[in-house]
């Protein structure tokens, strides 16, 4: 039972992604996250835990359990 709990804890990583909980088996990089969302090459900006992560650092920035990620884009506004 205890072993199961440990396995479960290690397997499941949870982040907040645009305000919603999101689960991963491992700790993806931001580039992998963007790719998995089908957003590669799109004009987006990302902040992790309220800090901007520049595009040039997406490939080397690994997400950790509990991180809060915001992915934004441009929409119509005045």
């Amino acid at each position: 039972m205890r072993l199961l709990e440990i396995c479960f804890r290690e397997a499941a990583m949870q982040i907040q992604l645009n305000g919603e909980p999101s689960h991963f088996d491992d700790e993806p990089t931001l580039a992998q996250l963007v790719d998995s969302l089908g957003l590669s090459g799109r004009r987006i900006a990302i902040e992790v835990n309220e800090e901007i992560v520049p595009r040039s650092l997406h490939a080397q920035t690994r997400l950790r359990d509990g991180d809060s990620v915001e992915i934004v884009h441009a929409i119509g506004g005045g």
Binding site: L17, G19, L37, V72, H73, A74, G76
Partner: peptide, 11 residues
Amino acid sequence: VTFAVRRTNLG
């Protein structure tokens, strides 16, 4: 030209 910044619709 102005625009707004909003969360990307995921999925």
